[in-house]
Amino acid sequence: MKSIIERYTELVSEVKDSVYRMALSLVGVEAEAEDITQDIYERVWRARDKVLLEEHPRAYVCRMTRNLAIDRLRQRERQATANSPDIERGGIGDGSDLRDIGERTKAIIATLPEKQRLTIHLRDVEGYDIEEIAEIMEMDATSVRMNLSRARKSVREQVLSMMNYGVEQN
């Protein structure tokens, strides 16, 4: 039988990239996503007795990540409002730092509303099932599909718009 340390290490190794990408998708800043990932490792270890007994520990860790990333985002938004109005998420902008249409597409995804962004990320980037996403996002499967559909259509419209304005694809 595996020790608790082995089971913890296996779980965290399995979800580490997913946790980082999810955090990055939500907060949009690499350093902060790294910080959240590290924080999640520690939180999972502290709550190991509960997490490792979960039916879907991977989904549980993703839910922890989502909640933590949203907390950090809210905290940052409050600080930004209080201190400096210049801090904002990466958008399409003037495209000067975006290498190609693929990069622009990532930027479009980053500007989606929070629920849509997370839904499309979990489904199309991470490959989670709708039921798992519903568990992570604490909503029902129909709402997940609705958010997913809206997110995909929104990205498509913006990509089409970009293509129609003659942005070259490398």
Binding site: T9, Y20, R21, S25, E34, T37, K106, G127
Partner: peptide, 13 residues
């Protein structure tokens, strides 16, 4: 996006 990997290493506790 899926190719992005975590730079944070997992340390065996």
């Amino acid at each position: 996006l899926h190719e992005t990997t975590s730079p944070v290493k997992v340390v065996r506790p």
